[in-house]
Amino acid sequence: MQDATLTWRKSTRSGAAGHCVEIANVPAAVLMRDSKDVTGPVLAFGGTDWAGFIAGVRDGEFDRPRA
């Protein structure tokens, strides 16, 4: 979704390496994209799904296994 009216933002904890995502809010969803590929795919989460995603991030559900 490429819309010039969207306000995309990323975490203030994002490092200089650019390994982060950006989010934008729209009335019915939270949109998320890769900050390195701003013309690439966008994920859309409804309110309940977004809350579940954030809970999974906080719980380490998506952490990469350490070698």
Rank of each mutant, 00 (worst) to 15 (best):
D63S: 09
G18S: 03
W50A: 06
A67G: 08
A67V: 07
V21S: 08
S35A: 15
Q2T: 15
L31M: 12
D63E: 13
K10Q: 08
G52H: 05
A67Q: 05
M1G: 15
A24E: 01
A24L: 02
G56M: 10
G56S: 12
M32P: 02
I23Y: 01
A55M: 11
F53Y: 12
T39P: 01
R9S: 15
K10P: 00
A16W: 07
S14A: 01
V42M: 01
I23V: 10
A51I: 04
I54S: 05
S11W: 03
P41D: 14
K10N: 10
L6K: 12
M1I: 13
R9H: 09
V38E: 12
D49I: 05
A44D: 02
L6S: 07
T48C: 10
G56H: 11
E61K: 07
A44G: 15
A28D: 13
T7F: 07
H19C: 10
R66P: 04
R66T: 09
H19L: 13
D37P: 04
T7Q: 15
A44V: 00
S11G: 05
D3F: 08
F45L: 06
S14Y: 02
T48A: 15
F53R: 02
G52L: 01
P27D: 13
A4C: 07
D34S: 08
P41L: 13
V57N: 06
A67W: 07
R9G: 13
T48D: 15
V26T: 13
R64H: 04
N25I: 11
P27C: 03
V38P: 10
L43N: 06
D34P: 01
N25Y: 09
T5G: 10
F62P: 02
C20F: 04
D59P: 03
E61W: 00
G18E: 02
D37A: 15
R58W: 09
A4Q: 14
F45A: 14
G60D: 08
R13S: 14
A29E: 12
G60R: 11
I54G: 03
F45E: 04
G56E: 06
P41M: 07
A28I: 00
S11Y: 02
A28Y: 06
T39E: 13
G47Q: 12
I23R: 00
A29Y: 05
A67E: 09
V21N: 06
R9A: 15
G52Y: 02
R33M: 07
S35D: 09
V42S: 03
S11K: 06
L43P: 02
W8P: 03
K36F: 09
A44H: 06
G18P: 04
Q2H: 12
T39V: 07
T5H: 13
G18F: 04
D59H: 10
A29G: 08
Q2P: 08
R64L: 12
D37R: 15
S14H: 04
G15R: 05
T48P: 11
G15T: 10
D59V: 00
N25W: 09
R13T: 14
T12E: 00
F45N: 11
A29R: 08
V38D: 06
V21H: 00
V30N: 00
D3Q: 13
K36D: 11
T48F: 06
M1Q: 14
P41N: 03
A55K: 14
D3S: 11
R33L: 04
R33Q: 12
A29K: 09
G56V: 12
F62N: 07
H19I: 12
